[in-house]
Computed example of a mutant assay.
Amino acid sequence: MPKPSFTSADFTSALLGLLPRGRVWPKELSSVHAQAISCYAPTFQRISDSALGLLVDAFPATTVNLLGEWELTLGLPDPCAGISPTFQGRRNQVVARFTNSGGQSIQFFESFALGLGYTVTVTQYAPFRCGQSACGQQLGGEDWFFTWAINSALNTITYFRTGQSAMGDPLASWGNSVLECELSEAKPAHTILQFHYS
């Protein structure tokens, strides 16, 4: 069954139907009384549309009006988002934090970054070992066991997208500060994280 959607005309008709009967209460749409009543109809339509959108708004990936509630629930905004994050960036950060189940695998960090809106690859390092490493590989000490790198574009561009962005957002924004901050917080405490940009 489809969701009921009422127009301003429906609400005007309903409000006129609630009036008492009699010559003093004209119900023709051309009367001054009916035109005055019809001023309330757009407000009722807006409230009705907002109530219909509540199910869509209740999920982090599609939220608009409840984004602030999701941010408070997940401890956002935080310094990772910067001074004035875009609506799309805020929602991406909410979704990434909400769906983050934790992990230490390469796939986890690549999918976590993708949830934030960044396409990355992960490089793991190991110290040079005779008989196992090849000529030309990097030499490294014991710290190389715990070092890994995130490879990404120098400035990831986030474009304004209809249905995703909000009024006031820039048409395009550049930067990887959210990526660096979020992954630095999500990384295992004993590891050394590097960011490599191409």
Rank of each mutant, 00 (worst) to 15 (best):
G141A: 08
S38I: 02
S31I: 07
L154C: 12
Q164P: 09
A126P: 06
E69S: 05
F59H: 06
G68K: 05
Q107I: 11
A58K: 00
L154I: 07
F98D: 01
N100A: 12
G102W: 04
F112S: 04
T191I: 11
H33F: 15
R23M: 12
L114A: 15
R97I: 01
S198L: 05
I83V: 13
A113D: 08
A96K: 09
V94W: 02
M167S: 14
S84V: 05
A189D: 12
S165M: 14
C130T: 09
E180C: 15
L19P: 08
E142M: 01
T123E: 04
V64I: 13
L193Y: 10
G82L: 14
R46L: 14
W70D: 04
L179N: 08
R91P: 10
L29Y: 05
G17A: 13
R97P: 02
Q93H: 13
A113M: 07
Q132M: 11
L171E: 13
V178F: 15
T99G: 03
C130S: 11
S5T: 14
G75C: 03
S152L: 05
A51N: 09
A149F: 01
T99H: 09
L52N: 15
Q107E: 14
F98L: 04
D169A: 07
T63L: 11
P79R: 04
W25L: 10
F108R: 05
T7S: 02
A81N: 14
L74V: 10
L66K: 09
S38A: 15
A51I: 14
G68A: 01
R161K: 12
T99R: 06
K3C: 11
F145G: 04
G68V: 04
L54V: 11
G140W: 03
L154K: 00
P26I: 14
E185V: 13
W144K: 12
W70Q: 06
Q45E: 07
M167N: 12
A166R: 12
R23G: 15
G117M: 02
D143Y: 01
T123K: 06
F59P: 01
P2C: 04
L179M: 15
I47G: 04
G136S: 02
E69V: 13
E28L: 13
S184M: 13
Y118T: 01
L15F: 08
T12A: 03
E182N: 02
D10M: 08
G141P: 01
L193R: 12
